[in-house]
Design a protein around this nucleic acid. Structure first.
Lengths: 228, 228
DNA sequence: ACCTTGTGTATTGTATACAAAATGTCGAGG
DNA sequence: CCTCGACATTTTGTATACAATACACAAGGT
């Protein structure tokens, strides 16, 4: 969309993802308009978009609030992402070509560099990760699947998950991408699907462990994990 | 939403589904506003909603058109519906209770009455069908899943599919719902999932057969099928 | 003949004013 | 002290005017 509408969307979205607007906080149109420096009209459009992406919840009386996610909600979304991204990986594997494979490798190499350091560059990891998954989705060549997934990824949850990753987990994610690349190189859709499912599952448990304390059976070894 | 916004939404949606606005037709805001008897503001909101539901496509320069679906697109959507509705059926089976089961039975009984006649009542069938699937989705108790599916069901395609159903196919659909009810009654999620997948697959092939001529291997027996 | 470029027209984007609706407040009655 | 209801305030919904942008078509250059 055009200037003002985008400004409102990016602005509000940023405030939500960064936590500047806490979960459950009321979103008055007038106030947001002022904070974003636009009128209410583009703010209203932005709110509808964000509602579609489930970042904003609306009451039956049409008032908007920052969506608050229970752990069950989050698990639900991760499961759906697992299903849909697995399907994307399978289709991508079946449609892979030399050029796309090369771009995927380049993307994962960038991730590798970001996580190889003593202090991994989380933002660079996130950017590489986003690009890697976007490339897969592009290769999957299913506009409807892409539309569904776009309302699921990039939640604040995803952002925060990575920040709870330790260096070991970041590197594991990088290695799982390598596995995916192997499956893609062989055009093995079933393999790619299986790896992607595990990849998403691991991401959920990393998040889940970091929030409520540990998982059901207690967690296996973990190395150093700084708190911040 | 409120009066005018709903009127615009319902109006435009109806025009698209009924075919009054053909696929690919341009959707000027001014013209739609006049036809719906409201101003451009609620029309714009309706168009954004319909875009989210993939009934309307927007060019990069923000002009709106009635979405035109290739057969590949339609297959894609049916596959996604298969995946997601299967999951809904499994979750619903795992969470079924006496009351919900009873409402599902009542709903399918209504479908049974609609298709038992010599000239089946398609509209009643559609309404019952919609309710049946909605009840399952409600029982699945996954708001995110419901949100995803809401952008997939009720396409013009779905509507037209039923109108291509012959009496035999309508009754088959009714029987498949009965199978689902059996799986629900036993709380057997895997069973319910399998039946639902087949149910959606059959719906796709019914549509597909009716449009391009028949399927790959040629189609098995078909009884009387009136053209209109 | 084709591509560029400029201008007029149609369409969409934004701001603002006003209408409708909801929420909160305060007081009367129980 | 609580409940209910009228009123004041806040918030959202709609219409409209105007600004910005895209499109179509024609004129000119290559």
């Amino acid at each position: 969309m055009s200037r003002a509408s985008d400004r409102a969307y990016d602005g509000i979205r940023g405030m939500i993802i960064s936590g500047e607007l806490a979960a459950g906080a009321p979103l008055g149109e007038e106030a947001l308009a002022e904070r974003c420096g636009v009128s209410r009209t583009p703010v209203r459009e932005a709110l509808r978009r964000l509602e579609g992406e489930m970042l904003v919840r609306r009451t039956e009386s049409q008032r908007s609030f920052v969506a608050d996610w229970s752990l069950d909600d989050i698990e639900d979304v991760f499961e759906l992402r697992g299903i849909l991204e697995s399907r994307a990986a399978r289709r991508a594997a079946e449609r892979m070509d030399r050029n796309a494979l090369q771009r995927l490798r380049a993307s994962n190499d960038a991730i590798g560099r970001a996580v190889a350091m003593i202090n991994p560059d989380i933002d660079e990891f996130l950017e590489g990760n986003r690009e890697f998954h976007a490339l897969i989705l592009e290769r999957a060549d299913s506009p409807k699947l892409a539309a569904l997934l776009s309302s699921l990824v990039e939640q604040p949850v995803v952002w925060r998950t990575a920040h709870h990753y330790g260096r070991e987990e970041l590197r594991r994610s990088h290695r799982e991408h390598d596995e995916l690349l192997a499956a893609f190189a062989r055009g093995d859709g079933t393999w790619a699907e299986a790896i992607m499912l595990g990849h998403i599952k691991r991401a959920f448990h990393a998040y889940s462990d970091a929030h409520r304390g540990l998982s059901a059976i207690d967690r296996p070894d973990r190395k150093a994990k700084a708190k911040a």
